[in-house]
C-alpha cells in the first residue's frame, strides 16, 4: 500500500520532471503539459503496483524506474550547468 501511494507519487514526480525538461515545446508549455500528464501517470503507476503479485517486485519496479529517471534528470542538469 505504501509502495503504491508514496512510491507511486515519487515516481510520478520524477517522470513529470523528466517530461517537463524534455518535451519539445517552450519551457512553460512543457511544464504545463507534463503537469497535466502527471495524474494519468500516477493512475497507471498505482494500477501497475497493485497488479504486481508481490510487494517486493512492486518496490523493485518502482525503484528501478526511479533510478533511471533520476539519472536522466541528473545528467541533463550536469550538461546544462
Amino acid at each position: 500500500m505504501a509502495a503504491a501511494i508514496l512510491g507511486g507519487y515519487a515516481l510520478t514526480a520524477l517522470a513529470t520532471m523528466a517530461l517537463a525538461m524534455n518535451l519539445p515545446m517552450s519551457r512553460a508549455e512543457a511544464s504545463m503539459a507534463a503537469t497535466l500528464l502527471s495524474f494519468p501517470i500516477y493512475t497507471c503507476a498505482m494500477i501497475w503496483v497493485f497488479a504486481t503479485r508481490t510487494a517486493k517486485r512492486a518496490w523493485l519496479g518502482i525503484g528501478a524506474s526511479a533510478v533511471v529517471l533520476m539519472a536522466l534528470i541528473g545528467l541533463q542538469r550536469l550538461v546544462a550547468a
Binding site: T12, A13, L14, T16, M17, A18, L19, A20, M21, R27, A28, A30, S31, M32, A34, T35, L36, S38, F39, P40, I73
Partner: peptide, 20 residues
C-alpha cells in the same frame, strides 16, 4: 481529472520546479 487539474501546481509542483 479536471478537479485535480484546478489545483495541479499544488499537487504536482515538480514539472514547474524542473524548469523554473
Amino acid at each position: 481529472y479536471s478537479g485535480l487539474v484546478t489545483l495541479m501546481f499544488m499537487y504536482m509542483p515538480w514539472g514547474v520546479q524542473a524548469n523554473y
